[in-house]
């Protein structure tokens, strides 16, 4: 079972004041900390679990700059066999469609039975790369998957629908699957583990090598402008020390009739 997993490095935005860049096309990222996209963390774990059970290889791929290798090293430390980074220069000139073209160009020449992506990325939340790749590569697919079981030449998936409903399907291999959080419990990665994994293969490719030109990667979607959320009335903020706040809360709870 050979599995390719597409991953992305995303900024952590909790407790930060995001600042919009001068062109109003994105946010300033130089002060932000980055991590492996949560969904991709589950995707790489699922690939490694399948490899541990059934044998085969796991390859992690990202499109990005040198800093993005950090997430590939993490994937290698978790148990991926090799990693590929596509150096594509200034990433802001691509939309999801461009990323799909690049990833597909890499994947098509690799041996694989399964291709995984996360359902979506935490930063721009488009949630389209996986299924676009399935169509681009003409692969069978299943999306938003919370359980996978291999059967002979097939894979049985549970897709998460709304309201806690699951949809079980059988998909013929090879297939592309988008992985939803909660499918497994991603393993812990130590600094030592990451250091050890430095010996594993991390290949860098560029667009020329892949035979894709900027013309083919022209974006279809154009970000006109990004902006901070419009003001809303918002919550009434309770202030003071914890004691005062707790007192005010008890008063509110009493008024709302839930303190009996």
């Amino acid at each position: 079972m050979d599995i390719v997993v597409c991953v992305k490095r995303v900024p952590l935005t909790e407790e930060v004041d995001l600042v919009i860049d001068a062109q109003k096309k994105g946010v300033k990222k130089d002060q932000l900390a980055f991590v492996l996209n949560d969904w991709d963390n589950y995707a790489i774990e699922e690939a490694i679990l399948l490899k541990e059970k059934h044998g085969g290889t796991v390859t992690a791929i990202t499109v990005g700059n040198e800093d993005d290798e950090e997430v590939l090293r993490r994937c290698l430390a978790m148990g991926a066999d090799r990693a590929i980074r596509v150096e594509a220069g200034d990433m802001s000139r691509f939309d999801s469609f461009g990323i799909v073209k690049i990833l597909s160009q890499v994947v098509k020449d690799l041996p694989y039975d399964l291709v995984f992506t996360g359902v979506l990325a935490d930063d721009d939340s488009y949630g389209m790369v996986g299924m676009m790749m399935a169509e681009e590569l003409n692969l069978n697919h299943s999306s938003m998957v919370t359980a996978i079981e291999l059967e002979d030449g097939k894979v049985r998936t549970t897709s998460e629908l709304e309201g806690g409903l699951g949809e079980v399907s059988v998909v013929d291999l090879p297939a592309l699957i988008t992985i939803q959080t909660g499918i497994n419990e991603p393993r812990y990665v130590s600094i030592l583990g990451i250091r050890k994994a430095a010996k594993k293969e991390l290949k860098v490719m560029d667009l020329a090598e892949l035979g894709v030109s900027d013309g083919e990667l022209a974006p279809r979607a154009i970000i006109e402008e990004v902006y901070l959320p419009p003001e809303t009335e918002g919550a009434q903020i309770l202030t003071g020390d914890p004691d005062k706040i707790a007192g005010d809360l008890v008063e509110i709870l009493t008024k709302k009739g839930v303190m009996e």
Binding site: F97, V100, V119, S125, Y126, G127, M128, V129, G130, M131, M132, A134, E135, E136, H141, S142, S143, M144, S159, E160, L161, E162, E167, R220, A221
Partner: peptide, 22 residues
Amino acid sequence: TSWGMELAPCLSIKTGLPLATD
């Protein structure tokens, strides 16, 4: 939705039409 998130990106590639999600 779950179903729409599977359908729309495939349809975008198939038809060549651009897609904005969510």
